[in-house]
């Protein structure tokens, strides 16, 4: 079986920082990316999603080389920290936008959206305007949208989506994601500032520093390592 994600010798320069990434993620994995601010965690997700264009290197998703494809043709869904929803639309429409936008009006799309909202614990929210939601609810709607895309885009890129939530709520959301991962066979990449989050949900964890993946291992193993000065400094910070 091919890997969900293979990143090879991917190079990108932002301002003065030269970055270089190699990474392989198996299908169904839940990988956390941790590291200090400016390490390149979000940039890596942006490169995978196609929001940034690398100088060289390749990205394969589900065995397909997507290096030259526009964002819309890559089988990924991103959940950002903020601005995931169109505030002037209702929740149902926001979720249905995850399907091919052309088909958002048909009955199947409506059913899928209602189901996805139920899955994230927002049953009956289809007609609620997005702007009336709380922070946690907004992220749930964004996840619901990722769910309706899951069949075509089973790779979920989470860019610190729960940073604005409290610890209990954060754990609840991580459990939700993990449950959905099992049920729908998703592969999840989570950028996080919190080793706790990684410990709670991700089997595997990568530590990034200065535009490189310094180490990648089982989460518990990685977080226990003491031979990486960058990592100890980072963890000590927290």
């Amino acid at each position: 079986m091919t890997a969900a994600l293979e990143v090879q010798d991917l190079r990108f320069t932002f301002e003065t920082m030269a970055m270089r990434f190699d990474l392989t993620v198996a299908r169904g994995d839940f990988l956390a990316l941790i590291g200090p601010s400016g390490a390149g965690k979000s940039t890596l997700l942006n490169l995978i999603a196609g929001f940034e264009t690398p100088q060289s290197g390749s990205i394969r998703l589900l065995g397909q080389d997507v290096s030259n494809l526009p964002p819309a043709r890559r089988p990924v869904t991103t959940v950002f920290q903020d601005h995931n929803l169109f505030d002037h639309l209702d929740c149902g429409t926001n979720v249905r936008l995850g399907l091919l936008p052309a088909s958002i009006k048909n009955r199947a799309a409506h059913t899928a959206a209602i189901e996805a909202l139920e899955q994230v614990g927002l049953a009956g929210f289809e007609t609620r305007p997005a702007r009336d939601l709380s922070g946690g609810q907004r992220q749930r709607v964004a996840i619901a949208r990722a769910l309706v895309r899951a069949r075509i885009c089973p790779l979920l890129l989470l860019d610190e989506p729960f940073a604005a939530l409290g610890p209990a709520q954060r754990r609840e959301m991580l459990d939700l994601i993990d449950g959905l991962r099992h049920r729908y066979g998703l592969t999840v990449l989570l950028v996080s500032h919190h080793p706790d989050e990684a410990r709670h949900a991700a089997q595997r964890c990568a530590f990034l520093d200065a535009g490189q993946i310094v180490a990648l291992d089982e989460t518990a193993t990685l977080l226990a390592r003491t031979d990486l000065p960058g990592l100890t400094a980072y963890l000590g910070d927290v």
Partner: peptide, 26 residues
């Protein structure tokens, strides 16, 4: 319009019509 909205619409495969309908028009 925030950058995330544009990224999102790129990922979701918005046509110019969708951009008009979901972002520019509102």
């Amino acid at each position: 319009v925030p950058g995330e909205s544009w990224r999102l619409s790129a990922q979701l495969g918005f046509s110019p019509g969708h951009v008009w309908r979901f972002i520019d028009r509102p």
